[in-house]
Design a protein around this nucleic acid. Structure first.
Lengths: 357, 357
DNA sequence: GGAATTTAATAGACCGTTCTAATTTTTGAT
DNA sequence: ATCAAAAATTAGAACGGTCTATTAAATTCC
């Protein structure tokens, strides 16, 4: 209430746009336009305002802007485990795109819990994220996408999809073709008993892999009884391969759900004194960076996780730019990266071409 | 302008608190109090409001609340690489705490770039995060913390610290003691020539490790010439150990900057036909989950990364609760987890106790 | 030189909450 | 029944920007 009050500047009080405007003798609206790089303001005025910004140490209050503009320059990333080299790669790819466009990323780890996933989505909605990139948790109900649509929340699915329907936005690899290529490669090397390891519960990405596997194996009239549903962990990979080796009709090769499982399989083999590549062929999926730096190096189906992140981010940005963007499904081609974990079958009797016609 | 306008409810228009209030016949202010679980409102009124919320499908607009309350229930996590098992663990630990308290997390990957780091911090400030957890990028200027303080931005450093000063908030492991324990363990196993691999540039966590290493080695009067500055990658681990093996005075054991480097070292050994554990001892740092599932399993200095995340999140929450919280430094004790990558030295001539005295 | 047009700047409402301070209602004591 | 104190509720300003519609100034055109 002292006489000084209206002239004293309280130290530490965050200064706002109106302070800047007043300081350079211009209206609040004009100052706002300058900050948004509007072409409507004269060069000279712009410079004056920017000088004022610098001088007063003004910082933009995104939250206030959001309220009015209904845009937050924030996006949500919902995945099931960041502690997974593939998803970490995806996240880094996304990040590079969003960073360049001035967006920030909310991260949510669902740990495959549908409840957590829903809680996070609600929270992100509360925070008014502009859009969401989601790798749906196993067991996600099919109407989740309808819910997001009802919210008018732009989204892009990655890696997995809740249901395969036309009107959707999705970025992922062609798992089916990838596994097919891998299977053919093993068959060409003389393998006949091949296991498909990993994929705990059914979701699109599991089904696609199985479809590819069945297609190849059945084309050659080989048995497809070794399709094993296990968690996608190292632990599971190691245990499963040891269990397989104990069978009388043990396989000579395995294609794995992802590289993590493949590393587990290699560990299991080594624990049994076997050499991956020489005594048993192992193929992974993803081509995470570690695949090139393991012993032996891992033959794997590259799903270009980083590029998936990049493409997904770009697709979401396109959707944000034009809300009526037609549904788009980006399927990235797989590439089989042949390294050392995968050699010809040991028994010379079956080392030549396929006998089936 | 039609006569219906003020009674028609536009479909899709997000309904706000004032709608709920009107619907149940109460003021906007009261409705607001209900949402914030204030004890000031009568039970009966509360129930009516909550019913209205459900009925109309109201969703809270956090952004609007933020503007007024100057609190966002969002925190920033600034790390240098999410694609790193240790940091992924830290992030998951944090997440579990913040999730329980209703906070969301902004993620920023600096990729060890001070410029990116600064850009992200500015962006987070714009977004009005309530606080920041940061693992400072290498080369971060010492005055970064002063800048954060000037911003009045509560922060907690993890794993590394810009400078070791008293008035700070930090959570990290006792790297020095950890490396000391590891070194003593190797010496007890008969090793004399021991390398310390990794730690590209100087930062607190590198220095602490070296200090511990020097302390132990010098106590026993062993040479400390094998301290190698390399990037903390698998690649670097593999290359470095091969280079070491080529030396006439090659070491018999290595302590690694982190588990990632240790895995690289094991790969390098195997590429040379050597068995980690039997022919050369390897000790890592962190105890990431993969350490228990590698071949051979990795002896490592556990830094409990997940717990660091938990403690850091709790410390930040405490700081948010009481802005004048006294500085706190939480140093977690290390534990040496002995597994298979680390056996006695091969040469029987030096396999007994230390000759130095 | 004056009207028409383009360019630049602005006033004031608005976004959806929370906060402050005041008012109304209820309860308890005399 | 009366008053004080406590409990419950509320009006209206505030947060810090953007948006719409309007005005003012500068430019072009005949």
């Amino acid at each position: 209430m002292s006489a000084q009050d209206n002239s004293t500047k309280t130290y530490g009080a965050r200064i706002s746009l109106v302070d800047v405007a007043r300081h350079v003798g211009v209206s609040r609206a004009t100052a706002s336009l300058v900050l948004r790089e509007s072409p409507l303001v004269a060069t000279k005025t712009r410079e004056r305002v920017l000088a004022g910004v610098k001088e007063l140490g003004y910082i933009y209050n995104r939250g206030a802007a959001n309220l009015r503009a209904k845009r937050t320059k924030a996006v949500g990333l919902v995945i099931w485990e960041i502690n997974n080299p593939c998803l970490a790669e995806v996240s880094m790819g996304m990040d590079s795109v969003f960073d360049a466009s001035g967006y920030v990323t909310y991260l949510a780890n669902t740990t495959e819990s549908v409840e957590r996933q829903e809680r996070f989505l609600l929270r992100m909605r509360e925070q008014n994220v502009d859009g969401i990139i989601i790798c749906p948790a196993v067991g996600t109900p099919v109407d989740l996408l309808d819910l997001l649509a009802e919210w008018q929340m732009p989204y892009v699915q990655i890696l997995r999809q809740v249901s395969i329907r036309n009107g959707d936005y999705y970025v992922g690899p062609d798992y089916q073709l990838g596994v097919e290529q891998a299977t053919e490669h093993l068959i060409r090397l003389g393998h006949r008993r091949i296991a498909l390891i990993g994929g705990e519960k059914s979701h699109s990405a599991t089904i696609a892999r199985r479809t590819g596997f069945f297609a190849s194996m059945e084309r050659h009239r080989f048995a497809t009884d070794l399709v094993l549903k296990t968690p996608a962990t190292r632990q599971a990979g190691a245990e499963t391969v040891k269990m397989l080796l104990d069978r009388p009709d043990a396989p000579t090769a395995a294609i794995c759900f992802n590289d993590v499982v493949a590393f587990g399989v290699m560990v299991g083999l080594q624990q049994r004194g076997l050499r991956p590549g020489a005594d048993f062929a192992v193929i992974g999926t993803d081509d995470v960076p570690e695949a090139a730096m393991s012993f032996p190096t891992l033959t794997t189906i590259s799903t270009s996780p980083r590029q998936i992140g990049v493409e997904a981010a770009r697709l979401l940005l396109r959707r944000l730019d034009s809300p009526n963007l037609a549904p788009e499904r980006i399927i990235l081609p797989p590439r089989l990266i042949v390294r050392d974990s995968c050699g010809p079958v040991m028994d010379p009797a079956v080392s030549c071409l396929s006998p089936a016609g």
